[in-house]
């Protein structure tokens, strides 16, 4: 590049680069160093080596509870969410009246912030005056069943969060819609000629062509679900018997309630490690089932 071009390149890049270094990469690297210290904000950090990690892996029973809660939520919310998004996308890929209205309705919930979502669903799940039980009550009365206590019931609290997560499938739906419209019509025509019915077309044409989108949705879904925080902070806190103590919620408490920044940083890096391993596994498994139409694999 000419000297002026190079200068202009750095000039245009510098605002983002400075921002990233100071507010992104810098703090992330600092937190790695802090995870090796005992640090409570304004006594200077005290180096303790790997003690935080040792305590995390061996000395803190709540860590395993937090991890289990997060895993439970992720394992149910992500596949269900992906399947639901695909289903809704297929429904909305047809020429029905008011199609853009329907698509908007399904998409709108996922732009709502986590906090607002938490406040709304807290009301919905309220056992006495909430919408969920108001709708369920007529059916429950027929079978003489009690009202579910939702967030106040340790067995129902996490399923409640999974249900709530399905409200936000709009984002995945949009991506699936784009994917569906990318499936070449000649494949469907060929399938029809071979006598394929609706299910067969779905299973043998649509789904294989959509595997890249499914892969994307599952991977991003896992990464996001592992970090669930805002809704839990607003809706149920740690929940009854710590049933909704999610990993990042516990991290938040360690950092901002107990002022153990070093330990919280260690928790953050362990989470990063776990998410990284899961993502690498997903990528290596992808070679077996994701089909890229362009011929790459």
């Amino acid at each position: 590049m000419a000297r002026e071009d190079r200068r202009d390149f750095w000039l245009f890049l510098s605002p983002w680069l400075i921002g990233f270094l100071f507010f992104g990469a810098g703090p992330i690297f600092a937190s790695l160093l802090l995870s090796l210290t005992d640090y409570s904000i304004f006594r200077p950090p005290r180096y303790v080596g790997l003690q935080n990690y040792k305590e995390l892996l061996a000395g803190d029973p709540l860590i395993y509870k937090a991890f289990w809660n997060t895993l439970f939520y992720t394992v149910f919310a992500v596949p269900l969410g992906t399947a639901a998004a695909l289903l809704v996308a297929m429904l909305l890929n047809q020429k029905v009246r008011g199609l853009s209205v329907w698509r908007t309705i399904y998409y709108l919930p996922c732009v709502v912030s986590g906090v607002a979502m938490g406040v709304l669903w807290r009301w919905i799940f309220n056992p006495e005056i909430g919408l969920a039980n108001a709708l369920l009550r007529p059916f429950l009365r027929v079978f003489d069943l009690p009202d579910p206590k939702w967030l106040l019931d340790p067995n129902l609290a996490k399923p409640a969060y999974v249900l709530m997560s399905l409200w936000g499938i709009g984002g995945g739906m949009i991506i699936f819609l784009a994917g569906l419209q990318g499936v070449p019509t000649h494949l469907y025509e060929a399938a029809e000629i071979d006598g394929a019915g609706r299910w067969s077309k779905f299973w043998n044409v649509t789904l294989p062509m959509l595997t890249p989108v499914v892969f994307f949705s599952l991977t991003m879904g896992f990464i996001g679900s592992f970090q669930i925080f805002a809704q839990a902070y607003v809706m149920s806190g740690r929940g009854v018997a710590n049933s909704t103590l999610f990993y990042v919620l516990y991290l938040f408490d360690q950092a901002f309630r107990y002022f153990r920044m070093g330990y919280a940083s260690a928790m953050a890096w362990v989470l990063f490690g776990i998410v990284l391993i899961v993502t690498v596994i997903q990528f290596s498994l992808a070679k077996r089932w994701v089909f890229y139409a362009g011929g790459e694999s």
């Binding site: 309220n126 056992p127 006495e128 005056i129 206590k149 106040l152 009854v240």
Partner: peptide, 12 residues
């Protein structure tokens, strides 16, 4: 004794 409100009543 049940003399204090139920968790559901307190919840909201």
């Amino acid at each position: 004794h049940g003399v204090t409100p139920t968790p559901e009543a307190t919840a909201d």
